[in-house]
Design a protein around this nucleic acid. Sequence first.
DNA 1: AAATTTATTGCCTACATTTGCATGACTTTA
DNA 2: TAAAGTCATGCAAATGTAGGCAATAAATTT
Lengths: 249, 249
Amino acid sequence: MLKEERHQTILSEVELHNRILLTDIAEALDVSIDTVRRDVKELDADNKLRKVHGGAISLGFRSNNTRNDNIYKLDHKIKIAEKALGLLKDGGVIFVDGGTTCLELARLIPTNLDLTCFTHSLPVAMELLTKSKITVILVGGQVSRESQSAIGANAIHNLSEIRVDYSFIGTGYVDSYYGLTEFDWDIVQVKKAIIKSSKKSVLLSISEKLNSQHRYKTCDINAINTMITELEPENDLLKPFRNHDIRLI
Amino acid sequence: MLKEERHQTILSEVELHNRILLTDIAEALDVSIDTVRRDVKELDADNKLRKVHGGAISLGFRSNNTRNDNIYKLDHKIKIAEKALGLLKDGGVIFVDGGTTCLELARLIPTNLDLTCFTHSLPVAMELLTKSKITVILVGGQVSRESQSAIGANAIHNLSEIRVDYSFIGTGYVDSYYGLTEFDWDIVQVKKAIIKSSKKSVLLSISEKLNSQHRYKTCDINAINTMITELEPENDLLKPFRNHDIRLI
DNA sequence: AAATTTATTGCCTACATTTGCATGACTTTA
DNA sequence: TAAAGTCATGCAAATGTAGGCAATAAATTT
């Protein structure tokens, strides 16, 4: 049996069933497990499949990456996300909201961090799945086309049954007096539920959103424990927020 | 024995068996292994075959077995998905399982069809979101990295609270006697829950999976109402399934 | 036709690759 | 946390490879 033949067989098995065990292949091909392991390692290096503990899985449907490369004020959002990383620690349980800033946070989480992450956002979930040490738990419900996240009564109910250390949330509008407001009523309901289910809520917002407001209110500024912007905490733009019981980073 | 003769013999042997060992050819032609090695090296340089360690492989064999696209047997899966579309009608409530075949179904659903789709698969949900008339409802739970879909107790619980007209499911392995089997225990639990929560279950499977089995059992063949393969329903390969109360499309 | 050149072949040797096994480290599971 | 399973590593045996060399065969020149 030539090596090339084994490779072909392994590939078709993996494409056929999405997943295979090294031991099964070894038995089927009548070679040692070590040989199969080495074969699979090579195929993985060639990007023909993905090796996992004890077996291999097809690349197949794990290729659609949600990369949107013209995110507004991406540099600011990255800066915010980097600051937010400082709040994360091994073993933590967090909730990550939807939106581009939170997605950036998800993207920047180090792969060696051991976290349990809840989210109702599909893109965030996809991103978090790429980090091997993160347990991703999806909050289900009707999915909003716009936000690509679960909303509605079911999502809110599901949220009511969890309690996380930190929630990282975004908002459409934020103002020191009017608090967090949104354009969309359904989104507001979900965000309320998220805040309710977290011990501490962290708002991620670019400074451009400061001092703006809209129709529906998510919560008062006091309901937020920490606000992260791309600005230095001492920046004058943040002055109105210093009267509140809120940590600025 | 002329060199040209040897070349012809080697080529026809390779075409016939898809692969050859240098040692076999040397013996068959009664020349030294070195000569064969040199011959094969030349044929490789002329792109008549591909030399590998210890032997040679037909070019055809290679191109037949490497996947031409991202998805294995995509043409078959499209054919299956197209047949499945025939079961959908406006106002329907369906469940779409994960896996490449079901993803293909999601992809092919017409944009003007008015459906409510449940799914526990992230890629399927993403795909369905692109169709404006479809209501997408995500079944939440812990997300499996491999399958990119929600699994576990929470997902199963969520499934227990819904009831759909049709569920479209995939399987790792299917056999007329052993029924639907899988490699992964957690996946089996979810599939069981899916079947339980549907009035009718439709299995989408390429014929290559027929007559194969694995460790954990999802259900008997009888639990499936309709099985769709890329084959004509009259095809002999489907014969073993005709003894069962199952519709073949 | 003889001499010379060129190509082919088999053999040899040193080197490279492949494979299975042993060991200890690491992961997963119960 | 312990047991079972999986993994990386090094090793040795078997096998495959490349290149040099000489004998032979074929082609070419003289």
